[in-house]
Simulated scan of single mutants.
Amino acid sequence: MSAEADAPGATDATAAPVLAAEGLEVAFTGRTGRSTARAVDGVDLEIGAGEIVALVGESGCGKSTLARALLGLVRPSAGRVAFRGRGLGYRPRELKEVRRRVQLVLQDPTGALNPRHTVYEAVAEGRRIHSGSTADEEEHVAEALARSGLRPPERFFLRYPHELSGGQRQRVAIAGALVLQPEVIVADEPVASLDASVRGEILQLLLRLRDDHGLAALVVTHDLGLAWNIADRAAVMYLGRVVETGTVEEVLAAPRHPYTKALLSVLPEAGAGEPQILAGEPPDPTRIPGGCRFHPRCPVLASGAAQAAGVAERCRSEDPGMLGGSGAAAQVACHWAHAREAEPTG
């Protein structure tokens, strides 16, 4: 077996993903019923066992809605969510079983923790709901706290959220997920509210959980630097759809989509030269542009490079399509990128 296959986070390409979105769409109808916002507009995405996938993009691009759909918190209008190859059912008993094995960690641990509950109660609550038993409860709570980096765990049992630092509160929130021994964690901006010194500690914790316990994770973030430091694969989302996906090295070291290039250009460590400032705001999801949905803001189209490549009209009129969910190869939804790669070399 190759060293690459033995590396932490490596997955068998033939194995069924632990969690997957298949042609997923989530739409919200306005109060008047006259407009429909396509928050998630046809997404294929897979998370393999022991793999960390970063879902990146601007605020409002549909990342959090997609994450909640994967957890069964939002019901899709089309497509399906699959856990271990089996379609997610929406009856209470079916959802309860999946939510025990796929846990959510929220951005703001302060809001996620009940200020009247001790740390012990906060961590034990999920297990009580899902198991209906308190047998060996203290042992499981202590183990979850220890795995989340709060040691000795007994020292934290009777403390309240206001007595903890921001990093400790986030660790308690993670322990509340770990106590159920899940297979996947969906972490929505898990370090956005933390100081820089604490962010690294939480990211190292997620990496240890992957390496030591085989835990898979979907990390939702707007921060490409975070994705570079933690993820095995990255999926870049724009206006409800994944527009580029591949390994972190493929997507962040050699981006192909103009949107990914623009996001990376503002990172000092990326060495991308002058930052690319995208024109305007992302379009209204109730009025998604025709053609490539990024074309009204695309610097490649605006500069004339798409015209020179002979694809400008296609950018304005032809949808580049939906990317497949497999992580086997890098993919990009961009006419210009495909035209460049089709050019003869030498």
Rank of each mutant, 00 (worst) to 15 (best):
F83W: 15
A20C: 09
C292L: 09
M237N: 03
Q170W: 13
C298A: 05
G50N: 06
R155P: 04
L206A: 00
A142G: 15
S77G: 15
G33H: 12
D212K: 11
R75C: 03
L206H: 01
A306N: 09
G50H: 08
E58L: 11
P258C: 06
R100L: 09
G166Y: 05
G240A: 05
R171W: 03
A173R: 03
H257G: 13
T245N: 01
A54D: 08
T110C: 02
E274S: 13
A328P: 02
L226R: 03
D211G: 00
H338Y: 00
A16S: 14
R116L: 12
R116E: 10
V141A: 06
L267I: 15
W228G: 00
L224D: 09
S197I: 08
V186R: 07
A262Y: 03
A306V: 06
R68Y: 13
G324I: 08
D108N: 15
V18I: 14
V219Q: 07
L88R: 10
E249M: 00
A328Y: 09
N229P: 00
V40T: 02
A312D: 14
V98A: 03
S35K: 12
G60F: 04
C292W: 04
E244H: 03
V300W: 07
V198N: 01
A254S: 13
T14R: 15
Y90K: 08
H140D: 11
M322V: 15
E250T: 09
L267M: 11
E97W: 04
A67Y: 00
G132N: 04
Q103S: 11
C334Y: 01
E154T: 10
E250H: 10
R293N: 02
G321A: 06
S2C: 13
G72W: 14
L207S: 11
V74G: 00
A328R: 15
G273N: 11
R256P: 03
A306F: 05
A15V: 13
G167W: 09
L95K: 07
P320N: 03
A302F: 01
V102Y: 02
L278C: 12
A20H: 04
E139M: 06
L194V: 04
P275T: 12
D188F: 13
E94Q: 15
Q107D: 11
V18M: 12
Y238S: 02
G214A: 11
S131V: 12
L226M: 12
G324L: 14
R171A: 03
G290Q: 13
L104N: 00
G33Y: 11
F294A: 01
C292T: 10
H213F: 13
R210V: 12
A20G: 05
G72R: 12
P109Q: 05
